[in-house]
C-alpha cells in the first residue's frame, strides 16, 4: 500500500483511527449477535447487557470524530490520507447505527417475552441474523485488508438478506391474520426483522465507503434495492403462505 509518512506521528494517528474502527466493529457484531440470541431465547438478562453496551459505541464514535477533526486541523490531509479520515468518520457513524439497531432489538425482548416466539419464526430470524452478521464480519475484514474488489462484491450481495426479510415479513403477516392476539408480539418481531435487515444495509454502506477510500471513486452501478415489502399486501401474503 502507501509508504509511511515522513512524520511518524501522523501514521500513529491514522493507525489509531483504524484500530478504534475495528474495535467498534467487534463490539457492534457482538451486540447484534447477542440481541438476536436474547430475542429467540427470550433472555432478558442478555437483552439488558446489549442495551447497556450501546454507550460503548456512542463513546467510541465520539472519540473517533474528535481524533479525526484534530488530525484534519493539524495535518491538512490530502488524497488517500483525507479519504482515510473521512472514511473513518463515516464508518464510525454506520457502526454506531448498527449498535442502535442491536439495542432496539434487545429492548423488544421484554415485549415478546410473555408471548414467546414460534420455533419457525425464531429460525427465520436466526437465519436472517446469520446472513447480516456474516456480511458485517466480511465488511470488517475488508476494512482491514482494503480490498476494493471484495468491497464491491459485498455490496452486490445484499439482495440475499432482502429476500429472506421479505419471506419473514409474509410469515409474520400470516400469524397476525390467524389470531389477532399475535399482532402485538408479531409487530415487535417485524421491527426486529427490519432492524436486522437494516444491518445488511449498513454493511453495504461501509463496503461502499471502503471502496471509495481505496480507489478515490464511488462504486459504479445501482446498489441492490431495499426490501420488496413496500408493495406487499395481506392478500398476497395469504396466497403465498
Amino acid at each position: 500500500m502507501n509508504s509511511p509518512h515522513i512524520a511518524s506521528a501522523y501514521d500513529e494517528e491514522l493507525k489509531y483511527l483504524t484500530r478504534r474502527i475495528s474495535e467498534m466493529g467487534g463490539t457492534a457484531e457482538q451486540m447484534v449477535a447477542d440481541s438476536v440470541r436474547a430475542l429467540v431465547s427470550t433472555d432478558a438478562a442478555l437483552a439488558q447487557k446489549v442495551i447497556s453496551e450501546d454507550v460503548i459505541l456512542d463513546e467510541a464514535e465520539r472519540q473517533i470524530n474528535e481524533k479525526a477533526i484534530v488530525t484534519i486541523a493539524r495535518r491538512q490531509p490530502v488524497a488517500a490520507d483525507l479519504r482515510e479520515i473521512m472514511g473513518a468518520i463515516r464508518i464510525a457513524a454506520e457502526l454506531e447505527r448498527v449498535g442502535d439497531l442491536g439495542k432496539n432489538t434487545a429492548k423488544r425482548v421484554f415485549a415478546v417475552q410473555s408471548a414467546g416466539i414460534p420455533r419457525a419464526l425464531a429460525r427465520g430470524l436466526e437465519h436472517l441474523a446469520e446472513l447480516a452478521l456474516m456480511q458485517l464480519k466480511e465488511v470488517l475484514d475488508v476494512y482491514a485488508t482494503r480490498s476494493a474488489e471484495k468491497a464491491k462484491a459485498i455490496r452486490e450481495r445484499d439482495d440475499e438478506i432482502d429476500a429472506i426479510y421479505t419471506s419473514l415479513f409474509r410469515e409474520l403477516l400470516t400469524y397476525m391474520m390467524e389470531d389477532p392476539r399475535n399482532i402485538t408480539p408479531c409487530t415487535h418481531l417485524l421491527f426486529c426483522a427490519k432492524n436486522i435487515e437494516r444491518i445488511g444495509d449498513h454493511a453495504t454502506n461501509i463496503a461502499e465507503t471502503i471502496y471509495y477510500m481505496t480507489t478515490g471513486s464511488q462504486p459504479e452501478g445501482d446498489r441492490p434495492k431495499d426490501d420488496n415489502t413496500t408493495s406487499l399486501v395481506a392478500g398476497v401474503a395469504d396466497s403465498t403462505a
Partner: peptide
Amino acid sequence: MFTNPDDQRTQDYIMGRFG
C-alpha cells in the same frame, strides 16, 4: 490532484510520505 492524484510520486509528495 489533492483528492486522488494519478501518479504515485505525486501521492507520496503531497501526502508527505517517503517516495
